[in-house]
Amino acid sequence: RKEMTAACTPRRRIINLTSVLSLQEEINEQGHEVLREMLHNHSFVGCVNPQWALAQHQTKLYLLNTTKLSEELFYQILIYDFANFGVLRLSEPAPLFDLAMLALDSPESGWTEEDGPKEGLAEYIVEFLKKKAEMLADYFSLEIDEEGNLIGLPLLIDNYVPPLEGLPIFILRLATEVNWDEEKECFESLSKECAMFYSIRKQYISEESTLSGQQSEVPGSIPNSWKWTVEHIVYKALRSHILPPKHFTEDGNILQLANLPDLYKVFERC
């Protein structure tokens, strides 16, 4: 597991931080080997919608929660590849102030007048994250320049770009939802926020969305749709870069829909 690298990086740093090793061990302890084997050997059937997909393993048909699986995938990559990410360069710098204002204007932020003026909160978020810029760049390849612009994001899987519609809320939550006081809790909560931002979430995906850094293989055609990215990038990574937690067998994120021999018997009677 320590050699797990989802995106190509030129050289690998050895990380011996106790906090990170502890988080890696927790993933191992909570892992479910049968689910790992199923995901490793599954045959992708198709997307139901951005949140759900169908896959077959041996004779069984499964309904998989793409949102939760991708979130767990990105969390584990962030923990196992800690401080070893490439950088996704933004085509132009994104001012943190503008991103924070967009987030505060969104109902998702939960902002009320009692929280104070949005401009003041946005300025605080910019200054707060600028103070964390060195650590964010060093460990997470999340790059913020001296003017308070976001200029780079971590490359977690080759050819995958997170849904940038979720970027404003991500920046807001970096400042408000991460435990910045304790090292282990900081790395864990920061990785979880980043994983949620990178995950496939239906509120940020339309039929026209593209999450891939590449064009489709047909010359002159439109960019790959999110469905292509889910199948050929995300579920491909799920084959080798995730140890599913045991609770996925109990919380409805992986559901067995049918045993195909039983279905064949039904059709034979028709």
Score class of each variant (00 low, 15 high):
Lys60Ala: 10
Leu35Asn: 09
Leu63Phe: 09
Pro168Glu: 15
Ile151Ala: 08
Val230Cys: 04
Gln256Ser: 04
Val87Thr: 05
Gln56His: 07
Val126Ile: 07
Val45Tyr: 01
Ala103Val: 15
His241Pro: 14
Leu150Asn: 01
Leu142Cys: 08
Ile205Arg: 06
Thr9His: 11
Glu72Met: 07
Trp111Thr: 14
Arg239Asn: 12
Gln256Gly: 09
Asn259His: 09
Met38Tyr: 14
Ile205Thr: 11
Leu211Glu: 06
Gly213Asp: 09
Lys68Ile: 08
Glu26Leu: 12
Asn41Asp: 04
Ser106Trp: 07
Leu17Trp: 12
Asn224His: 10
Glu108Gly: 03
Trp111Ala: 15
Ala237Gln: 10
Glu177Phe: 15
Gln76Gly: 13
Glu25Val: 14
Glu165Arg: 04
Ser22Thr: 10
Val34His: 09
Ala122Trp: 01
Pro244Gln: 14
Pro107Trp: 14
Leu190Gln: 00
Glu3Gln: 11
Asn16His: 11
Tyr80Phe: 04
Glu231Gly: 14
Leu64Lys: 01
Phe97Trp: 02
Ser216Glu: 08
Ile169Met: 14
Leu155Lys: 05
Ile242Gly: 14
Ile157Leu: 08
Tyr124Arg: 01
Glu268Arg: 10
His241Gly: 12
Pro244Lys: 03
Glu250Ser: 09
Pro107Tyr: 14
Leu69Asn: 01
Ser221Met: 11
Glu33Gln: 12
Glu127Val: 08
His40Asp: 12
Leu142Phe: 12
Thr5Ile: 14
Ile169Asp: 15
Leu136Lys: 01
Leu156Pro: 02
Phe97His: 01
Ser206Asp: 08
Gly166Tyr: 13
Glu177His: 10
Tyr75Ile: 02
Lys192Thr: 11
Ser19Thr: 05
Ala53Glu: 00
Pro154His: 00
Glu108Gln: 04
Ser22Met: 14
Lys118Asp: 10
Pro223Glu: 11
Ile144Arg: 01
Val234Pro: 00
Tyr62Ile: 15
Tyr235Leu: 13
Val178Ala: 01
Ser199Ala: 10
Ser109Pro: 15
Asn224Cys: 07
Leu90Asn: 00
Gln24Arg: 04
Phe140Leu: 06
Asn179Pro: 02
Leu88Trp: 06
Phe170Glu: 00
Leu211Ser: 04
Asp105Trp: 14
Pro117Tyr: 15
Val230Tyr: 08
Pro261His: 12
Leu129Ile: 13
Leu156Ser: 00
Lys118Ile: 15
Ile157Asn: 03
Gly86Pro: 14
Glu146Asn: 04
Thr112Gln: 10
Arg36Lys: 05
Glu183Lys: 02
Leu150Gly: 01
Ile77Cys: 14
Ile171Val: 07
Trp226Met: 03
Leu88Val: 10
Lys118Gly: 15
Phe140His: 04
Tyr160Ser: 00
Ser206Trp: 07
Gln58Asp: 03
Thr9Pro: 10
Lys236Gly: 10
Ile171Gly: 00
His57Val: 05
Leu54Pro: 00
His247Arg: 06
Arg12Val: 10
Gly110Glu: 01
Cys186His: 03
Ile77Gly: 13
Asp138Asn: 02
Gly31Met: 11
Trp111Ser: 15
Asp251Phe: 13
Ala122Asp: 00
Ile169Gly: 14
Glu134Cys: 03
His232Trp: 15
Lys227Gly: 06
Pro168Gln: 02
Glu147Leu: 08
Glu165Val: 05
Cys186Gln: 02
Asp145Met: 01
Phe187Ile: 04
Phe170Ala: 00
Ile205His: 07
Gly220Gln: 10
Glu72Arg: 04
Gln203Ile: 09
Val230Ile: 04
Val126Cys: 05
Glu185Asp: 06
Lys184Phe: 06
Gln76Asn: 13
Ile205Ala: 10
Met4His: 09
Ser199Glu: 01
Asp138Ser: 03
Val178Phe: 01
Glu217Ser: 06
Leu99Ser: 01
Lys265Asp: 10
Val178Met: 01
Phe187Ala: 09
Cys194His: 07
Lys184Glu: 07
Glu114Trp: 15
Lys68Met: 09
Ala175Asp: 00
Asn149Met: 10
Pro10His: 13
Tyr124Leu: 13
Thr249Val: 08
Tyr139Met: 03
Val218Phe: 04
Lys236Arg: 11
Asp138Gln: 03
Gly152Pro: 00
Trp111Tyr: 03
Tyr235Asp: 06
Pro261Asn: 07
His232Asn: 05
Asn253Phe: 03
Leu174Glu: 00
Glu37Trp: 15
Pro117Lys: 02
Val218Tyr: 10
Asp145His: 01
Phe82Asn: 02
Asn149Asp: 13
Ile125Pro: 00
Lys184Arg: 04
Phe82Gln: 03
Pro107Ile: 12
Ile157Tyr: 07
Asp98Ile: 14
Lys131His: 09
Ser199Gln: 04
Glu114Leu: 13
Gly31Tyr: 13
Glu25Asp: 07
Tyr160Thr: 00
Ser106Arg: 02
Thr112Arg: 12
Glu37Pro: 11
Tyr62Arg: 02
His241Leu: 13
Glu123Val: 12
Ile233Gln: 09
Gly213Ser: 07
Leu167Gly: 00
Glu92Ser: 04
Arg36Ala: 12
Arg36Ile: 13
Ile14Gln: 09
Asn159Met: 06
Asn28Tyr: 14
Lys192His: 10
Ala175Glu: 00
Lys118Leu: 15
Val34Leu: 10
Thr210Ser: 05
Lys132Asn: 03
Phe267Tyr: 08
Ile14Ala: 05
Ala55Arg: 00
Glu268Val: 12
Ala55Lys: 02
Pro162Met: 01
Val20Trp: 14
Leu88His: 07
Trp228Tyr: 07
Ser225Pro: 07
Leu23Thr: 14
Glu123His: 03
Pro107Leu: 13
Ser191Gly: 09
Ile144Trp: 01
Leu63His: 11
Glu3Thr: 11
Asp98His: 08
Leu164Asn: 03
Tyr264Val: 05
Ala175Cys: 15
Arg1Ala: 09
Asp98Pro: 03
Glu37Ser: 09
Gln215Arg: 08
Val126Thr: 05
Ile171Pro: 00
Leu96Met: 07
Pro93Met: 02
Gly252Ile: 10
Asp262Ser: 08
Asn224Gln: 04
Trp228Lys: 10
Lys68Asn: 07
Thr18Glu: 05
Glu26Ile: 07
Glu127Met: 12
Thr210Ile: 05
Cys8Val: 11
His241Glu: 13
Ala83Cys: 02
Leu190Asp: 00
Gly252His: 08
Asp262Val: 10
Glu183Tyr: 07
Gln256Phe: 11
Asn28Lys: 04
Lys118Arg: 15
Leu35Phe: 11
Glu193Ile: 04
Gly86Phe: 13
Val234Ser: 01
Phe44Tyr: 12
Leu238Glu: 01
Gly110Pro: 01
Lys118Glu: 14
Phe267Met: 11
Phe82Ile: 01
Asp138Cys: 06
Val230Met: 07
Leu260Thr: 06
Glu185Gly: 05
Ser206Tyr: 09
Arg269Val: 13
Leu64Arg: 00
Ser216Trp: 08
Gln56Ile: 03
Leu167Ile: 07
Gly120Thr: 06
Asp251Asn: 06
Ile151Asn: 06
Phe248Thr: 10
Ser91Ile: 11
Tyr139Trp: 03
Asn65Ser: 11
Glu29Thr: 10
Ile144Gly: 01
Lys118Ser: 15
Met135Arg: 03
Met101Ile: 09
Gly152Asn: 08
Ser191Arg: 14
Glu147Ile: 07
Tyr80Glu: 06
Glu134Gln: 03
Pro245Gly: 11
Glu71Phe: 03
Tyr198Ile: 00
Leu142Asn: 01
Leu172Met: 04
Arg89Glu: 14
Pro244Leu: 12
Leu35Cys: 09
Lys130Trp: 15
Leu64Ala: 11
Tyr62Gln: 06
Ser22Tyr: 13
Ile200Phe: 03
Asn259Lys: 01
Leu150Val: 07
Asp145Tyr: 01
Ser225Arg: 09
Ala94Trp: 10
Val20Ser: 15
Val218Cys: 10
Gly148Ala: 04
Gly166Cys: 09
Val20Arg: 07
Phe248Met: 04
Leu102Glu: 10
Val20Lys: 09
Asp262Pro: 05
Leu96Cys: 03
Phe85Leu: 05
Gly116Val: 15
Phe82Ser: 02
Arg89Cys: 14
Leu136Val: 12
Glu71Thr: 08
Leu99Ala: 04
Lys246Gly: 12
Asp262Thr: 09
Leu156Asp: 00
Asn28Gln: 10
Gly220Arg: 08
Lys236Pro: 10
Leu23Tyr: 15
Arg1Asp: 15
Met4Leu: 10
Ser19Tyr: 13
Lys131Pro: 15
Ala100Ile: 02
His32Tyr: 09
Asn224Leu: 06
Ala100Glu: 00
Thr229Leu: 10
Ile125Asn: 02
Asn159Pro: 06
Phe267Val: 07
Pro10Ile: 13
Asp181Lys: 02
Phe44His: 11
Gly220Thr: 11
